[in-house]
Design a protein around this nucleic acid. Structure first.
Lengths: 118, 118
DNA sequence: CAATAATATTCCTTTACAGGTATATACCTT
DNA sequence: AAGGTATATACCTGTAAAGGAATATTATTG
């Protein structure tokens, strides 16, 4: 873990959409369409941010049939973990993160339920 | 402390030079030329990054005669403080941060000693 | 007031990247 | 193989910001 790596972690954290995604993935692994649903953002936008997070190793993905399941990377570094904790604390204060988590609870996130409609 | 603010803190943290500056300021308040000396970077570069940090309220400044003394902002938020701690831990591992701190120790940081030569 | 020192700002070029539209890819089902 | 679904990528435009060169600002000293 050197200073360059550190910066790259922070680069990942300095976008609201990515923070929202990480906030969700802090709860559980999720497929793209569920993230998309919960955040109410476009497919491209979510997909790109996930690619960004993945390219910086904060996140891992695994294909399951048509779906890609994303999760916080196993070998994620201490800085990320510390900040995910902070994010968790903050999600009790910030309406944006809070609402995301509530929508996540209200969503059936089993992989079978990956239709954009429901 | 909302998600926007959070992002701005992370934006401040995602540049190596700014991390190095914060690492130094974590030790003590410093004037621009000492930061410049210790980091071995140009005046413009340091000055701009300090302005950036100040505009995002991570840092405060106070003029003393010709010199501007910069310090970590008083009302700095919990996220920043948490990450400054991480930075402190990391400065035992990363040669860049470590060397900076060593050069800082070796430098007379009294305001009187602000000649670029010394 | 002139000269000097410390710091800030302006202007410029380059790079990263956000987000949209359109399209491609991968997999499944029939 | 064809069509559908989930996801990724390419291309484009706009914006933030990094860093350098030159210049401006602010304060001190003579």
């Amino acid at each position: 873990m050197n200073s360059e790596e550190l910066c790259r972690v922070y680069r990942c954290l300095c976008d609201v959409t990515r923070l929202r995604i990480l906030n969700l993935l802090g709860e559980d692994a999720l497929c793209v369409c569920h993230i998309q649903q919960v955040l109410g953002e476009s497919q491209v936008k979510i997909s790109k941010h996930l690619a960004y997070l993945k390219s910086h190793r904060l996140v891992e993905s695994e294909r399951r049939a048509n779906w890609m399941i994303y999760r916080i990377a196993d070998a994620s570094n201490p800085i990320l973990e510390e900040n995910l904790k902070c994010l968790q604390d903050l999600s009790n204060e910030d309406p944006l993160f809070m609402d995301d988590l509530q929508r996540l609870q209200a969503t059936d996130t089993s992989v079978v339920c990956c239709t954009t409609s429901g």
